[in-house]
Structures are given as C-alpha cells and as structure tokens.
Amino acid sequence: MRSKLILATAIVALSACSGAPSVTNEAALPNSGVNAPEMNDAMAPPTAEAATDAASYLGKAGAGDLFEIESSKAVLAKTGNADVKMFANMMVDNHSQSTKKLKAAAKADGVSVSPPKLDPAQQAMLDEIKSAQADRVDAIYKAHQTQAHQAALALQQAYAAEGDKPALKKAAAEIVPVIQKHIETLGKLPG
C-alpha cells in the first residue's frame, strides 16, 4: 500500500512539473483522503508571473521556508533514521538562514515583510507528516520535501530572473544553489 501511495504521488508530482493535464477527481490517491487535482494544485510550481512582484515573492518564499522548518521539526520528533535527521536539521538551519537573508534584502529594498503563513496545501502536508506513523514518516516527509523544493526552486529562479527589486533578486539568485543542493541530497535519502 505504501508503495502505491508513493508511486501515485510521484506520478502526480511529475505531471505537475511537466505541465501535463491534471488528473480527474476519480483518480483519488488510494487511502490518502486527497483527490488527485488537489494534490496536483498543491504541487504545481509557482509561475514566473506570480513571483515577479516583491510582495507575492516574499509571501511564497516565507511560507516555503516556514513549511520546510516546521515539517523538518515534525519529522525529527518521529524518525529513527540518522540520514533523515541530518537532512531535517540542515533544513531547519538553511531555511532559517534564507528567511534572514530575504528579510535583510527586503529591508534594503524598502519592502515590508509580513509574517509567513502556510497555504492550505502546505498545512495539509505538514499535518500529514505530523500524523504519520513512525514507519511511514520518512517516505511521506521525503515526498513532501521534494514537492516543496521543486516549487521553491521555480520560485527563486523566477524571481532572480524577473523580480522587481534588486536586493531581493540577488538574494533569490544566492538561494537557488542551496535549494539545488537540497534536491540532490533528497535524492539520496531512503524512502
């Protein structure tokens, strides 16, 4: 059953990343309680258009960092896997640093930063990690981290290329290789 959920999640994630048409409601993920279109929407990377103004970018980047930090803290409370623990600790540290970097850049650009808030899809993923059984939490965490990092990479790349504030564009460009390293490390995690 676990492998079916992971396979279904991977298929939906790939279709979201490739721009393939979304799946119909009849294609709900088995025993997940989530319909495929909701998952598809949750995993769709932000569009470049949505990420080019500072306020939208900061809101999405802040929510992304908050998800990475909170989901990593949640998995640390459950996992027994040393590699997952190491990755989760790295997420807490690196995403705390990127939040500080973006706040400083926003200040330099004269842009106010609102406190971050998870969107409904991020909250659902966090809740799933928190409620997961210990024997399934690593795979769920890895799947959600992969989705979140793909979205974060698209967001940072789009703002670095087309953003409207110079210090924030520079910060986004500096964050891109960090996210790419996270994605590479995720590929090596079990689950």
Rank of each mutant, 00 (worst) to 15 (best):
V84H: 07
K165L: 00
Y159N: 05
Y141H: 10
D83T: 12
I140E: 00
M91A: 01
S98E: 14
A172E: 04
K4V: 13
P45D: 05
V34K: 02
D41K: 15
T79G: 03
K142L: 11
A8L: 03
Q97Y: 09
N31Q: 11
P166N: 13
G191M: 10
M86G: 13
L14D: 05
Y159V: 10
Q180C: 02
A158K: 03
A50Y: 03
P116T: 08
L5Q: 15
A48R: 09
L126F: 10
L76N: 03
N31G: 04
A10T: 11
K188R: 06
T99Q: 10
N94A: 15
A51Q: 04
K188A: 07
H182C: 06
S18R: 06
G80N: 10
H182M: 05
A143N: 12
E184R: 08
D119M: 11
A16G: 13
D109W: 00
K165S: 04
A27F: 14
L7M: 06
L14Y: 00
A134N: 12
K4S: 14
D65I: 11
L14E: 10
V75C: 02
S22T: 13
E49H: 10
I11G: 06
K181I: 08
A82V: 04
A134H: 07
V12N: 12
S71N: 10
E128P: 02
N35P: 08
P37R: 11
C17N: 14
N31H: 12
E128K: 15
F87Q: 03
F67M: 07
A154Q: 14
T99V: 08
Q150S: 09
A77N: 05
Q150V: 10
A48D: 09
M125E: 11
A88N: 08
I11H: 03
Y159Q: 10
K169T: 04
G163C: 05
A108S: 08
L58Y: 12
L29R: 07
Y141T: 06
A167V: 02
K4I: 12
A50T: 06
L76S: 02
K73Y: 03
A10G: 07
S18P: 00
P177H: 11
P166I: 12
K103S: 06
D93C: 02
V92T: 05
L189G: 00
K165Y: 00
P45F: 10
P21D: 01
G62T: 05
L66M: 15
A108I: 01
L58M: 12
A51H: 00
Q156A: 14
E68R: 13
G19Q: 12
I140G: 01
L189N: 01
I175T: 09
A134Y: 03
P115N: 15
T185L: 13
S32L: 15
L189I: 05
V23I: 12
P166T: 14
E26W: 01
S72G: 09
A8D: 07
L58S: 06
M90E: 11
P21L: 05
I140H: 01
D127I: 02
I69S: 08
N89E: 15
E38F: 06
D138R: 05
I11N: 11
T24Y: 04
K181G: 12
P177T: 04
A88S: 08
A8V: 04
